[in-house]
Amino acid sequence: MKNTYDFAIVGGGLVGMAIAYGLAKRGQTVAVLDGEDASFRAARGNFGLVWVSGKGRKEPDYGRWSFESSRLWPTFAEELEDASGLKLGYSRPGGLNIALTEDSLAASVENVDYLYRQDARLTYDVLDGGRLRGMVPDIGDDVVGAVYSENDGHVSPLYTLRALFTAFAKAGGDYVPKAAVSTIERRGDGFRLDTALGTFCSAKLVLCAGLGNRDLAPMVSLDAPIVPLRGQILVTERVRPFLHYPTLSVRQTAEGSVLLGESAEDVGLDAGVTADIVAHIARKAIKPFPLLHSVNVVRAWGALRVMTPDSMPIYDESHACPGAFLTTCHSGVTLAAAHCELLVPWLLGGQLPPILDYFHAKRFHV
């Protein structure tokens, strides 16, 4: 392994590895400088949704960007499976936003209809109780309906990350663990990055370090106004197939286990698990899916999401240090295909996709 590269990627999560693989397969020399195993990693708390429906009420281009990534995901998943020999459990059957009351269903419809009127590709369908039970026979009697979107799907986030590592290595990339970056300096036309394993130099760098970007971004005159938001997830034993369509808080994996989630807690840097939130998640899942009442939970865990003030991504290049980029988002799975295929050409010197013009950090300082 050498110490001078075309690109240094700081952070080896879903965002960093998707970008690193995209660069390496385009012929760039790339080093991924990653932290410790115990570092805060959002990928551990990713629910595995490739989700479009409802995204972008504050800024419709977020919905469009998610749609573009969803459109690329079938080919992206096939490419990763071929490179790694892994099955990612990817499918796009469409997703369900389930409603237990008429008011919540009406609110969901209002949201997706607004987005559909901005972009007709953001399609949706409103399902009453009868149509929904035709698709999901085990749905509970208390469910009044759902919003369905054909654009939504799901995948295993951990298999995806593992496949990205394998594909990146096969493309010639260097992954350097236990190399948390302590300082970054502009040196001539490139950058010097000091780590616990020594110094690395690169012509360009991309900060994908999640919460670590808060400290790293100012070193290259960038701004990363991000905060942690804890999410807890439960996984059950394997059960018979009953849920073909992913939902926002319950999804059945390709192996048969069921993931339960959708908590959002402002607790600082605490990635722990709490009994009250675990109980809340379980009760919330049982109501639409009563069969889960008798299913055993085998594991629960927490992880810290990386959130901006408006929950949308940041894509920036430093004006003071050209060639230094910042990428941060909390939709690392959904946007992985877009990061690999549509964002990388910008990093290589092309134009930022116009759809991303809004997603700079200065939007928080106007």
Rank of each mutant, 00 (worst) to 15 (best):
M1E: 13
M1K: 02
K2G: 15
M17R: 02
M17G: 14
Y21D: 10
G22T: 11
K25S: 09
V30W: 07
D34Q: 04
A42M: 11
G56M: 05
G63R: 04
W65I: 15
W73D: 02
A77T: 02
E78N: 03
K87E: 14
Y90N: 00
D103L: 08
L105D: 02
A106L: 11
V109A: 11
L115Y: 07
A120L: 11
A120Q: 09
L127Q: 07
G129R: 14
G129V: 05
G129I: 07
L132C: 06
R133K: 14
M135D: 00
V136Y: 04
D138T: 15
D138H: 11
I139E: 01
S149Y: 03
R162H: 12
L164S: 12
A169V: 10
G173A: 14
Y175Q: 06
V176Q: 04
V176F: 01
P177K: 02
P177I: 13
A180S: 15
T183L: 04
L193C: 13
G198K: 00
T199A: 10
F200C: 01
S202V: 12
D215Q: 13
P218G: 01
V220W: 05
A224L: 08
I226T: 13
V227D: 11
V227N: 05
L229N: 14
Q232R: 10
R238Q: 15
L243Q: 07
L248H: 07
T253F: 01
E262R: 01
V273N: 08
I281Q: 03
K284G: 06
F289K: 01
L291V: 10
A300E: 12
P309Y: 07
Y315D: 01
Y315H: 07
A320T: 14
T327C: 15
S331W: 12
T334R: 09
H339C: 05
H339M: 14
L348V: 01
Q351C: 00
L352I: 02
I355A: 05
L356E: 02
D357K: 05
A361N: 05
R363S: 12
V366P: 14
